[in-house]
Design a protein around this nucleic acid. Structure first.
Length: 491
RNA sequence: CGGGGUGUGGCUCAGUCCGGUUAGAGUACCUGGUUUGGGACCAGGGGGUCGCAGGUUCGAAUCCUGCCACCCCGACCA
């Protein structure tokens, strides 16, 4: 009872905040806007990392590490880039503290001012392209396919655990190519890797698209993205992949000699996903009882809870439970047998539901007599008795089924809350009522996009890649349009 | 940075308007016992600079001034 969280219908954002804390994923830190990621939350992030890391390696990328600090001067090299990030940079100006003689404690030593101030990286394009200048001389050095796992800092005004924090963890891929086409292919390939990951591991449908000029990454020629719908109908950008053209190559003078011996600037890409995915995962599937985790990312896939009165009963149950645990583990299923006697079964049931463990097996004296176990699935809360001889196979299949079920559920939710709209009146009406994704015609201008944003809070999430061309007129200006774009309120 | 709200044991909050014994409750925690198929019960126990700093007063969680933090709503954003 004490752990109960507010319901989604009551207060969606409070539900989210409480869930993150009560499920032991993360908490606020003493530093404003930053978070402490707790072991259970970090375990989920580690599973995401492992999966993505393998996908990156399988597509030919290598990991490296570049410094946290970036010389201030690097930033001004690429005009759009500096403009995009200048307002949210943490800056290191000094390198020493000293004792405060007057008030006690310590103060910044004014004599220890840095000659050139350092920026705490909000993203690493500049420092990485500075290195690439030295790494690349010939077409033989290309493509250069690097990824790094790192933390970055963006000094945000308003923050929320996982969704927007001043410091966050992410991966950033930075590649260099000999040709424009190859760089575009890389950009698209990584977008597909992200979409594949979010669909198949996070069990969340995504819409692939390109950003409008307003929403484009600072310094990119084109920004691709995947957008996912949360349970409140708002959109969340789950990953981005940028075609950088030759912008950073020119800014950092990265040239290579082609086969004809002529010098050319290289073509770049960058792409990233962050701990924000944790927010997406939480908001997409969870319910009023707590987290619902897709089996493919759950740190604990199966929990076994013994029900007993006497020690002899526990001993007999443990024997069965340990046998299942090791059989399941041999099939690469992560199992926790919780035989703590400090908590009652009912308490444990509620606790593992809050933590989103996909499958629970309860074994009690009656089960020993009947040769059964009770298996409960987190996604539907259904329970059933299963013969012990069938248990391992049943659980294996059930985990797959849960993975599919929550994906399907998210998919139909997305479909139910996606609408085509042809007039601005309908558009506003729909946003007021249900929110969700709205496909509408747009005249292609930033002015119109900006006006709609001001009047309705909805933004163009992307120009979808898969949508067919269709003649129409802009819902706002009435000017001709060739394609519908995806509007939504966004996180 | 604007508008609103809140700061009281680990957590959720009452008490503040109208100043007055030793600052409360629920929950969590510790000990002992009974319990264990959906967040157990009984008994005992520990834990508080009432956000911080000043001020008014015989006396401040309560009144006054300043500051800080957090939350919600806007501007900025993955």
């Amino acid at each position: 009872m004490s752990k109960a969280i507010p319901s989604r219908s009551e207060d969606y954002s409070l539900w989210y905040n409480e869930l993150v804390k009560k499920a032991g994923l993360a908490e606020n830190s003493p530093v404003r806007g930053c978070m402490v990621i707790k072991p259970y939350g970090f375990a989920i992030w580690e599973k995401m990392q492992q999966t993505l890391d393998k996908m990156f390696k399988d597509t030919g990328h290598s990991n490296a590490y570049f410094p946290l600090f970036i010389p201030k001067s690097f930033f001004s090299r690429e005009a759009d880039h500096v403009e995009g990030f200048a307002k949210e940079c943490a800056v290191v100006t000094h390198y020493r503290l000293k004792n405060d003689e007057e008030n006690g404690g310590v103060v910044v030593d004014p004599d220890a001012k840095l000659e050139e101030e350092l920026i705490v990286r909000p993203t690493s394009e500049t420092v990485i392209w500075d290195s690439y200048k030295n790494w690349i001389q010939s077409y033989r050095d290309l493509p250069l396919l690097i990824n790094q796992w790192a933390n970055v800092v963006r000094w945000e005004m308003r923050t929320r655990l996982f969704l927007r924090t001043a410091e966050f963890l992410w991966q950033e891929g930075h590649t260099a190519h000999a040709t424009k086409n190859e760089a575009i292919e890389e950009t698209e390939q990584m977008l597909n890797v992200y979409a594949d990951f979010v669909e198949n591991f996070m069990a969340l449908p995504v819409t692939k698209g390109v950003k409008t000029a307003n929403e484009r990454f600072a310094g990119a020629v084109e920004t691709y993205c995947i957008e996912a719908m949360m349970q409140d109908g708002k959109a969340l950008q789950a990953g981005t992949s940028h075609f950088l053209g030759q912008n950073f190559a020119k800014a950092f003078d990265v040239k290579f000699a082609n086969k004809e011996g002529k010098e050319e600037f290289v073509w770049g890409t960058s792409w990233g996903v962050s701990t924000r995915l944790m927010g997406a995962l939480i908001m997409a599937h969870s319910d009023d009882d707590g987290l619902v985790l897709p089996p493919n990312l759950a740190p604990i896939q199966v929990v076994i809870v013994p029900i007993y009165r006497k020690d002899e009963e526990l001993a007999a149950i443990s024997e069965v439970a340990e046998k299942f645990a090791s059989e399941l583990r041999s099939k690469n299923i992560s199992v926790q047998f919780d035989k703590r006697d400090t908590h009652k079964p009912g308490w444990k049931f509620a606790e593992y539901e809050l933590k989103g463990v996909p499958v629970r097996i309860a074994i009690g004296p009656k089960d020993l007599q009947k040769g059964t176990v009770e298996i409960a699935r987190r996604d539907t809360k259904e329970k059933q008795f299963v013969q012990q001889s069938d248990t391992v196979g049943f659980v294996e299949k059930l985990l797959q089924e849960i993975q599919e079920n929550i994906h399907n559920k998210a998919k139909s939710f997305e479909q139910e809350n996606t609408h085509k709209v042809d007039t601005y009146e309908e558009f506003k009406e729909l946003l007021k009522k249900d929110g969700g994704f709205i496909y509408a015609h747009w005249d292609g201008t930033s002015e119109t996009e900006e006006k709609i944003k001001q009047e309705t809070k909805a933004t163009i999430r992307c120009i979808p890649l898969n949508s067919e061309k269709e003649e129409g007129t802009c819902i706002y200006s009435g000017k001709p349009s060739t394609q519908r774009v995806l509007f939504a309120k966004a996180y």
